[in-house]
Amino acid sequence: MPPAPAVTNFRPLRNAAVCLGLSLLAGPLAISATLAAPPARSPQLSGLATLLLGTVRGKPTGMNGVTRLTAGDVDRELRLACQELMRAGPVDLDDTTRFDGCVTRPGKIVEFHLKVSGVDATRDDTREFMASAKPILERGICRNPDVPVLGKLGVRLRYHYVAGQKQLVLLDIPPDQCLRK
């Protein structure tokens, strides 16, 4: 059997940027409108669940729901919002990226789970691209004005992107990261 041909078409890598960046990379990388998917419809969600989903989509919500984090048990409120998002089911963010939900960890940690299709996570060039895209994705997350406010409230955000069973990238946004940007 002949060896596999060398990859000369980097469209899959460009598509990976679209997949992983969701709307976060759209601004920083100026992805053309032809590659961006139409916005997915959101299920009816509480303000805090909408806020959390907005951090994944890269869309500010005007801090809708933040008052639930300023009075009461923050870990409990975050857990309830993630449970609501899990019940709402997966949300397609674009044609290759799906938000599968979130879970919380003690200490105001929210972990988002995102599934990317059409990307081979075992390829060296994919891993190299993801490593180089990570700072761009982090800056995109921090540009959402809701994220620094969550940081001021002590919330840590983690974005787990997977393709198949392989992790593509983990973006860890500690509470003070977006305050420095």
Rank of each mutant, 00 (worst) to 15 (best):
P3M: 06
A4V: 14
P5R: 02
P5S: 06
V7Q: 14
V7N: 05
V7S: 12
F10I: 12
F10G: 01
L13S: 07
L13N: 03
R14I: 15
A17S: 15
A17M: 15
C19D: 04
C19W: 05
L22I: 05
L22H: 11
S23A: 14
L24Q: 07
L24N: 09
L24S: 05
L25R: 01
A26S: 14
P28D: 03
A33R: 13
L35Y: 11
A37H: 10
A37N: 07
A37Y: 09
P38T: 05
P38Y: 00
A40I: 01
P43L: 10
P43M: 06
L45W: 04
S46Y: 13
S46V: 11
S46H: 06
L48C: 03
L48F: 10
L48M: 07
A49V: 04
A49W: 13
L51V: 02
L52D: 06
L53W: 08
G54R: 08
G54V: 02
R57M: 09
P60A: 15
G62Q: 06
M63L: 15
N64M: 10
N64P: 00
V66N: 00
V66M: 11
R68S: 14
R68K: 15
L69N: 13
T70V: 15
T70D: 11
G72H: 08
D73G: 02
V74F: 07
D75F: 11
D75W: 09
D75T: 06
R79L: 12
R79P: 00
A81E: 04
M86H: 12
R87Y: 10
G89W: 12
G89N: 08
D92H: 13
D95Q: 08
D95W: 12
T96V: 04
T97R: 14
R98S: 11
R98Q: 14
F99W: 12
D100E: 14
V103G: 07
V103T: 11
V103Q: 12
T104C: 05
P106V: 09
K108P: 01
F112I: 01
H113V: 00
H113I: 01
H113R: 14
L114K: 09
K115Y: 08
V116A: 06
V116H: 06
G118T: 09
V119F: 03
T122F: 04
R123K: 15
D125G: 04
T126I: 14
E128D: 02
M130S: 07
A131C: 00
A131E: 03
A131V: 01
P135S: 09
P135W: 10
L137P: 01
L137F: 15
E138W: 05
G140Q: 11
I141Q: 03
I141G: 00
I141V: 15
R143W: 11
R143N: 10
V147F: 10
V147S: 03
V147A: 10
P148T: 04
V149K: 11
L150M: 13
L150H: 02
L150C: 03
G151Y: 14
G151A: 03
L153I: 08
V155K: 00
V155W: 05
L157H: 10
L157E: 15
L157F: 13
R158T: 10
H160I: 08
Y161H: 12
Y161E: 04
V162E: 07
Q165V: 02
K166P: 00
Q167R: 11
Q167K: 08
L168K: 02
L170A: 14
D172T: 11
I173D: 02
P174K: 06
C178F: 11
L179E: 15
K181A: 13
